[in-house]
């Protein structure tokens, strides 16, 4: 299969590293508005050709799969051009700026018989996959509630959100920088509780920094249970976790420092349950701490392991004519949730 990529920025590096590692996939071309960015990316990734005009690339190269990794405000235009040219599309989140555009893209994909896969990478990180397996095996019972929590110092020096010389494009979105993280939070909630009925959001400016909002909480009532989504730019240390509460147990998947901690009902005398669960938790924590250190030395995808698996599964689905790892219904539901959570989001003046 022949792949092409549009937008040679930071996230492109991870897409390209994965494409390089996939057997049977050739990187046919890369494209960026900056000639030097396109040229360097082609040289370093082994792409056969480079372009600065994506339409010329689509016409001349006719790639089977196009990765759209340009800044968010051009995702819609690039993805629709690629679909119209007959390519399957793997697009970075958010697939488009609003729900209407997302729906239009999905229609276009359906009409052209091509896959549109949005990068919901964290669904495919090992701890989340393990959590999904636990649920499938019935170990946690039925889902009651899911909490997706992220604490991230997005104004730390060197962060693209802290660059006062070249404001990050996400700062202009409703909700500002936090909006950039909502697809992650929403896709993780959706995978456990499915489509939402209602959603209520609290947006708050806690610090004196330049963000329109630096705290976000979203409370969601959905098909399989409730969900709480939260983002904090002030809480320390950094955290990214998904905690699923079920009728027979609870499990927390850590994403920044990968681990899965499980507390569940077991066939032991009731007074011993906290001890057994505690010992199990301790063993998991020690293993995860060592594993986390090893990961820093190992190289490879690191925290982007989910992206690698998502891309790998997408190519496999295309080759086999199977369903993609992220379905159009998933993408629509996630963006519907985001739209409802951002109704009252503050915007930059």
């Amino acid at each position: 299969m022949r792949a092409a990529l549009i937008g040679a920025g930071r996230i492109a590096r991870h897409h390209l590293a994965c494409i390089r590692a996939l057997p049977g996939v050739e990187l046919a071309a890369v494209c960026d508005l900056s000639p030097v960015a396109a040229e360097v990316t082609a040289e370093r990734s082994g792409a056969r050709r480079w372009f600065t005009d994506h339409r010329a690339m689509l016409a001349e190269v006719a790639p089977d799969v196009v990765h759209v990794t340009a800044p968010p405000h051009v995702h819609y235009a690039l993805a629709s051009d690629a679909l119209a040219a007959g390519s399957h599309v793997i697009v970075e989140k958010p697939a488009a700026a609003d729900l209407d555009d997302v729906r239009r893209l999905l229609e276009l994909a359906a009409d052209s018989g091509r896959h549109l896969v949005e990068n919901h990478n964290y669904l495919f990180n090992a701890p989340v996959l393990a959590l999904r397996d636990l649920l499938r095996a019935g170990q946690l019972g039925d889902v009651v509630h899911v909490e997706v929590a992220m604490c991230l110092d997005i104004l730390v020096e060197g962060s693209p959100f802290a660059d006062r010389n070249l404001p990050h494009p996400a700062l202009g979105l409703p909700g500002g920088a936090i909006a950039d993280f909502l697809p992650h939070l929403a896709s993780l909630a959706h995978v456990f509780v499915a489509s939402h009925h209602t959603a209520h959001a609290v947006w708050r400016r806690h610090g004196a920094g330049p963000l329109v909002a630096d705290e976000f909480r979203g409370l969601v009532d959905a098909e399989h249970g409730t969900a709480m989504l939260s983002f904090s730019a002030n809480g320390r240390p950094d955290l990214f976790s998904v905690r699923v509460s079920g009728t027979r147990g609870r499990a927390t998947a850590g994403l920044f420092e990968p681990r899965l901690v499980v507390e569940r009902l077991r066939d032991v005398p009731r007074p011993l349950l906290p001890t057994i669960n505690g010992l199990s938790e301790g063993r998991t924590a020690v293993g995860a701490a060592v594993g986390s250190l090893a990961r820093k030395f190992r190289g490879g995808p690191g925290g982007y392991e989910g992206l690698w698996l998502l891309i790998e599964r997408t190519y496999a689905a295309i080759a086999e004519g199977a369903d993609p790892p992220v379905s159009p219904a998933d993408i629509e539901a996630v963006h519907h949730l985001i739209a409802d959570l951002t109704i009252n989001a503050p915007e930059a003046a």
Partner: peptide, 17 residues
């Protein structure tokens, strides 16, 4: 003179372009 590789590339090389 600082930042990750992509930040340095954008500031130094694309800036020069």
């Amino acid at each position: 003179v600082s930042g990750d590789e992509d930040a340095q590339f954008a500031a130094t090389v694309i800036g020069t372009e």
